[in-house]
Design a protein around this nucleic acid. Sequence first.
DNA 1: CATGAATGAGGATTCATTCAT
DNA 2: GATGAATGAATCCTCATTCAT
Lengths: 213, 213, 213, 213
Amino acid sequence: MAKERQAQMTGMISNTDLGKAESHTQAQQARILIAAKACFVESGFHCASVANIAKTAGMSPGLIYRYFENKNAIIFAIIEQQLLESRNKIRALRAADDLGPAVLNYLDSSDGSSDESVGTSLFLEMSAEATRDSEIAEALGRYDNAMRVELADLLNRSASGGDKKPTTPVAPERVLALVCMIEGLMIRKAREPNLDRKALKSAIDIIINSLLN
Amino acid sequence: MAKERQAQMTGMISNTDLGKAESHTQAQQARILIAAKACFVESGFHCASVANIAKTAGMSPGLIYRYFENKNAIIFAIIEQQLLESRNKIRALRAADDLGPAVLNYLDSSDGSSDESVGTSLFLEMSAEATRDSEIAEALGRYDNAMRVELADLLNRSASGGDKKPTTPVAPERVLALVCMIEGLMIRKAREPNLDRKALKSAIDIIINSLLN
Amino acid sequence: MAKERQAQMTGMISNTDLGKAESHTQAQQARILIAAKACFVESGFHCASVANIAKTAGMSPGLIYRYFENKNAIIFAIIEQQLLESRNKIRALRAADDLGPAVLNYLDSSDGSSDESVGTSLFLEMSAEATRDSEIAEALGRYDNAMRVELADLLNRSASGGDKKPTTPVAPERVLALVCMIEGLMIRKAREPNLDRKALKSAIDIIINSLLN
Amino acid sequence: MAKERQAQMTGMISNTDLGKAESHTQAQQARILIAAKACFVESGFHCASVANIAKTAGMSPGLIYRYFENKNAIIFAIIEQQLLESRNKIRALRAADDLGPAVLNYLDSSDGSSDESVGTSLFLEMSAEATRDSEIAEALGRYDNAMRVELADLLNRSASGGDKKPTTPVAPERVLALVCMIEGLMIRKAREPNLDRKALKSAIDIIINSLLN
DNA sequence: CATGAATGAGGATTCATTCAT
DNA sequence: GATGAATGAATCCTCATTCAT
């Protein structure tokens, strides 16, 4: 189909990328969010134009507004989506026997996009935006609190060697240190994409170890 | 002088804030950069308008273009300035006897502005921009390398208890871990400005200790 | 039926409001015109959107175009409808014994809508539009001529005390004065909805009297 | 000058039309208002585009926003201007010995534009808008009250044959009747530009006479 | 007949940049 | 050097209209 081929050649998103969405509305919203994510990564929240998002999504600009009230709503949706994904990835760490490799894996895990730096780029974009928009700041704050609980649990169980009942709850400063390290690593990944993986792994191990004993 | 008083009342930057600059050109550039920094912190690189920067600097929009080729040049200059400041602050850590408090101090140190979050906000802005602009990415990359050397030296001397000649050079992964922690802490400061300082201090100590033995 | 109830709750027009229309097409057109009138009164000809008319009519936007060629055709139809209604109301004045109360009654008479200002609002809208659209101007012109004949007759019979054969035909300037007064009163009603009715009645009487002797 | 000639050929407004304005800002605002008035008369408040106003004013669209906050502000300014002009014209009636010719003159008096129907067209536009915008409604309401006072005074003095001290104040219903007649006449002028002037004059006289005895 | 998704031109508004004074 | 008026391209968003289902 001509349209399909054109979509691929111009970097537009084809239907096959979309996965299964139950309703047409959800499918369209998903399509827009995928396009928006790509545009936001490439240009940032503010320089990405609705027109470009529409083109990337393979639809007309006007149609965007049937599915999102305005551009800001798209930004919010992207942020919520990223936070949700991030939460899920953190939760997935639970299953890990060994915390170090799990964290490394977390950093590597992309969201299905070919470019792994997507997550990091949006993370920076979101964090910067949170310093100006209180609504976004609140969303990130809620996420941060939830993450801390999750990571505390994780540290707890890792510290007790996998036993279900750790003797003492983990100290909050250890959780804080873990959060900082993870986010610091994300920044490094964004700024030095070719970072030596071995060094990365070692750095993680050093800190993880200091947090576990 | 009427203009001077008006500048102060409206939050504009007056000549007396500028310190000593050798030439008029330098003084004007400095004035613009101070204004730009304030605007960028408040609105981000892209939402801050040249008109607003000019108003904050107490000059006409047209004059901006006598001292900077365009808005992008201002962004570059701000970034270079921030990197330079950051470098100086890192170097100042050398004098410290104890690494932990020094790092805490680094996070607190503002650049003379009353608002301490200036540095963090611009750090996010710069990092996000670096993911899109290769020139900026390179500048940050150069800074990153320089910093690593600096921090390696710092760790070296701290590990050897202040002796001038450490027996073994510090491992690169420890430097990496330190960088991640510092930047992770900056992110935390941006996203949770009311973070408990005691926890912050403890988190720093945990990691510093693990890096020094 | 769920849809019916929803229609009532949201102010949409239900089938039961429509009266008897012979064909389905006529019924649909009537439904659209009722909705359009409401929207035009609320937002004016140009700010009322087809989408909103459709929603008010309880139908899809696309369906509008099965019954009217475009939005302009709806405006024309509304205008013709208003002129027809107005003509009928003027004709109804014939039956009146006393011209003064009849005119007052004319101003009050609504078109079945609960809001009496509908007629006035559309009158302004139409008149304004007539200054730009020659087709509308012509329609109003035809109406104006017909009205003058009607009002001349009315004045004639009123002047002659109800006798069927007045001795002299009424002068055109008296008809003109009557038209001006009626329309001037409509404007007043639109701009001062809380106008004192007693003063209104007196004002009408003064002029009517001067026109009858 | 080429620009000047082009302005004339395309119906743009040249500097010479502007009269004396003290500041540049006032001159530009006046230029915009003149253009806006022309556009509003031609297309109505809502269909006139800012782009077209700018073109008519012989300036770029962006410049409009240096002198008016938004399109609505232009509409407000036009309305205030019209009300002011109208007030002045009404006040000028005071000097008249004879009320009838004075009213006729009022209807004829244009605002310097070549097209006499400008006032009427804007009058309809304003009145229609007042039914939807409460701020405009209030402005017109204030004008209406002021006008009534003015017209009451006028009637008073006319009734008393120019004596300074009329024995009895004029009844409000007479003022109301006068207002209706004047505005009714404006509508007629808009809808029937070729109205017979003799009939018009006679109609005015009939009513004026009935109001004065 | 009916739906409502889709289109795309057009409208209001902003803003980096230029230039006459 | 300095001003700020002026430009015009670009942005977000709306809406009349069409058409596949």
